[in-house]
Deep mutational scan, measured.
Amino acid sequence: MATADDFKLIRDIHSTGGRRQVFGSREQKPFEDLVDLGWLKRSSVDSRATHYQITERGTSAAL
């Protein structure tokens, strides 16, 4: 179930172009929650960072 923080984060991601790069596993937790909701997808993972991209469902949630 989505929380107020989830909606705040997806709106922030949407307003800044729909993509986010995250460093460190602790910082990934809120983004992984949005992946579980179907609002974000992991577009790539490298040794230092994970890249996320907003989905259509995420765009709808952000509006």
Rank of each mutant, 00 (worst) to 15 (best):
T3Q: 06
D46G: 09
T50N: 07
G24P: 05
R42S: 06
E32M: 11
S44D: 08
G17L: 04
F31M: 05
V22T: 04
T55E: 02
K29W: 05
D12P: 01
S44Y: 15
P30W: 05
L63E: 08
L40V: 05
D12M: 10
T16R: 09
A61M: 08
M1A: 12
L40W: 00
F7S: 03
V45S: 11
G58C: 01
T59H: 07
H51S: 13
V35R: 03
G38N: 04
A2V: 06
W39N: 00
G18P: 02
L9F: 03
G18R: 02
A2W: 06
L40S: 00
R11Q: 09
S43D: 12
Q28W: 05
A49R: 08
Q28P: 04
T59I: 15
V45G: 09
T50M: 08
D46N: 11
T55M: 02
K8H: 08
F23K: 10
G18L: 02
L40T: 02
D12T: 07
I54T: 03
I10H: 00
L34A: 02
E32S: 07
A4T: 09
P30G: 05
A49D: 06
I10Y: 00
G38R: 04
F7P: 01
R26P: 09
K29V: 06
S43Q: 12
E56Q: 10
I54Q: 02
L63M: 11
D12C: 12
R42G: 04
F31P: 00
T16H: 10
K41Q: 12
V35M: 06
S15M: 13
D46V: 07
T50H: 07
D46P: 05
R20H: 05
S47Q: 11
V22W: 03
R20P: 04
A4K: 10
L40H: 01
A49L: 09
G38Y: 03
I13P: 01
H51E: 15
S60K: 14
G24L: 09
V45H: 09
D5T: 07
W39T: 00
D36F: 13
D12W: 12
V35E: 03
I13A: 00
R42P: 05
W39Y: 03
T50Q: 06
G24H: 13
G24W: 06
R11A: 08
R48M: 14
D33V: 15
L9E: 02
H14F: 14
S47D: 14
G58P: 01
T3K: 08
S44K: 14
R19H: 14
L9R: 05
Q28A: 09
M1S: 11
D36E: 14
A61S: 04
Q53A: 09
K29G: 08
V45C: 09
W39K: 00
W39I: 01
R20K: 08
G17A: 05
S25Y: 10
D6E: 07
F7G: 02
S43C: 13
E56R: 09
A61F: 05
D33I: 15
Q28D: 04
H14I: 06
A49K: 07
V22S: 04
I10E: 00
S47E: 14
A62V: 05
K41Y: 15
S15Y: 11
F31A: 02
K41C: 12
A62G: 03
G38D: 04
R48L: 14
R19E: 13
K8F: 08
R26I: 14
K41L: 14
R57A: 15
H51A: 10
V35A: 04
A2R: 04
A4G: 08
A61R: 03
P30M: 07
Q53M: 12
K41G: 06
Q53P: 00
R11T: 07
S47M: 10
G38T: 03
R20L: 08
E27D: 13
K8C: 10
R42F: 05
R19L: 10
Y52D: 01
I13F: 03
Q28S: 08
F7Y: 14
Q21I: 15
I54Y: 00
F7I: 09
D6W: 05
K29L: 07
A62S: 04
R20T: 08
M1Q: 13
T16V: 06
V35H: 03
L40Y: 00
L37W: 03
D36G: 12
I10M: 03
K8Q: 10
A62Q: 02
F23E: 11
F7T: 04
Q21N: 08
D6V: 05
D12Y: 10
T50R: 08
F31S: 01
G58H: 01
D6R: 07
T16D: 08
G17F: 04
A2D: 03
Q21T: 15
